[in-house]
Design a protein around this nucleic acid. Structure first.
Length: 457
RNA sequence: UCCCCGGUAGCUCAAUCGGCAGAGCGGGUGGCUGUUAACCACUAGGUUGGCGGUUCGAGUCCGUCCCGGGGAGCCA
């Protein structure tokens, strides 16, 4: 019977006649026998297989190199070694796939992240990238679990969209036209959808439709942005979690956001303890402390106006001026969350001029009910707002932003018929991964990253 | 797009003032009866990112392009 390495390591007693299939991580020879470290991806740990040389030919032994795939038949016995409880006594070994040592790029020692990006098809076989992948999986599952237990409806918003959303944010155009054979202007009315199509930059507008019918909903999927942002925190294809809630105001969604982040931190600490230990050891020594602080303390909450005061009083010299009407720069955000509060902080009520048209206008007529959650090391993790539910004001805001109301007729209909106060936010899933692991480049938490100028794998 | 740093063996890096191209790890060979970042000995391995220039002589200086990293901008 085939056992996963994870199952084998959790056995309570010895077990005869098991099969393990996996990849060799290292081989250590002694006289007459070898130790093989076998990993099958089920967990961070390897199982140590003890191979007596009379079980294989000399030629087979030489093929048991780092990266080779094998099937091992044998008995699980208590290990005399100190570093593991169980080991696998090999009865029979079958080599499934060779990995010639002079050609296979992965060594048993540590590699740089930069090098591993050049062999992204092999890096999941390393401890670190295996761990990242398993944590991603658990975290995604945790998100569904969180919303499911709170009674949210999981909705599927489209990836292909006809609305260029806010007219802000660079989009990717999708076309079925033969681009190699087009002269002059492109006539999108001849295209597949008879209009120009884009990859979605957010599921928010569709989520609002569903929230205004089903109450509490969330969407979780990939989003695409063609911004020429060449930084360790931006990818052209990334995953977003976007809850949208009817009858909820800005405070309600800030509460939800805090509850959710804390719940997920706790979930990962509980379910990914072994994998997380790798990041504590090798990636970010302060990880445990940061995550525990995240759980323990309430997040800070300040208005944009208050944030400006904090920055002005800081005595810091900032490269960019701190003044009303300007968006907070990266250096400002970092100061607030890393130096001043040293924990996650909500900044809310931004000037309407620097925010999107759909955000609800506050009574001061100057600010909108928007919020960002800034976290140490990552920056903006969440962006959200209370949506403008009043038809006349929404129309006025659209005009101010230079948008054509005709393009949004269905969005405006939500306010024409049975409008309700509603709010939501978007959480960058990959940035949450960075926060939870301490990995500092988004290219390393995405298995197949699409960034400005790179899409090899 | 701008600023800064880098590109030398499979990987991570050294190379003094412009003067013989080096180490560790990994690989190969041999050794070792319980290793676990195994250990010991020996050994092979180079278009110094590309192109052009200065010089008796360039890894090193100059120009240019490419690639990688960091910062900034851009960014729901």
């Amino acid at each position: 019977m085939r056992l996963m390495v994870k199952e084998l390591l959790l056995l309570d007693e010895p077990k005869k006649d098991v099969i393990i299939k996996g990849w060799i991580r290292t081989r250590r020879d002694s006289k007459g026998f070898s130790f093989l470290e076998i990993n099958d991806g089920s967990c961070l740990s390897n199982v140590q297989a003890v191979l007596s040389w009379d079980k294989v030919s000399r030629q087979e032994l030489s093929r048991l190199t780092t990266g080779a795939s094998v099937a091992i038949f044998g008995d699980v016995v208590a290990s005399p070694g100190k570093k593991q409880k169980w080991e696998l006594q090999v009865e029979k070994l079958e080599i499934l796939g060779d990995a010639p040592a002079d050609k296979y790029p992965l060594q048993k020692k540590r590699h740089s992240d930069e090098f591993l990006r050049t062999i992204a098809h092999l890096r999941p076989r390393t401890n670190k990238y295996g761990a990242i992948t398993r944590i991603r999986s658990e975290l995604a599952f945790g998100i569904h679990k969180f919303f499911h237990q709170k009674g949210f409806c999981y909705i599927h918003t489209p990836i292909l969209t006809g609305s260029d959303c806010e007219g802000a944010g660079e989009t990717f155009t999708v076309t079925a036209l033969d681009l190699s054979n087009i002269q002059g202007r492109i006539d999108f009315s001849k295209d597949f959808f008879k209009k120009r199509a884009y990859l979605t930059v957010s599921g928010q507008l569709e989520a609002e439709i569903m929230a205004c019918a089903l109450g509490s909903v969330y969407t979780f999927g990939p989003t695409f942005r063609a911004e020429k942002s060449d930084t360790p925190r931006h990818a052209a294809e990334f995953w977003m979690v976007e809850p949208e809630i009817a009858f909820a105001d800005l405070n309600d969604v800030m509460e939800l956001a805090e509850e959710m982040v804390k719940w997920l931190v706790n979930y990962v600490l509980e379910h990914c303890a072994e994998d997380l230990s790798l990041f504590v050891r090798f990636v970010d020594k302060n990880l445990t402390q940061r995550l525990e602080l995240t759980l323990k303390e309430p997040f800070a909450k300040i208005s944009y106006q208050e944030a400006l005061e904090v920055l002005k009083k800081s005595g810091r010299k900032f490269e960019y001026p701190v003044e009303y009407g300007r968006d907070l720069q990266t250096e400002h955000e970092r100061y607030l969350t890393e130096a001043h509060f040293q924990k996650p902080v909500f900044v809310y009520n931004y000037p309407k001029e620097i925010k999107a048209f759909y955000m609800r206008l506050n009574d001061d007529q100057k600010t909108v009910a928007a919020m960002d959650l800034l976290v140490p090391g990552v920056g903006e993790l969440i962006g959200g707002s209370q949506r403008e539910e009043r038809l006349e004001i929404l129309e006025k805001r659209m005009e101010e932003c230079g948008l054509d109301k005709k393009d949004y007729w269905w969005y405006l209909d939500l306010r024409r018929f049975g409008t309700v106060v509603h709010s939501g936010f978007g959480l960058g899933f990959d940035r949450l991964m960075m926060y939870l692991t301490g990995v500092s480049n988004v290219r390393d938490v995405l298995s197949f990253y699409r960034c400005l100028g790179s899409m090899e794998f």
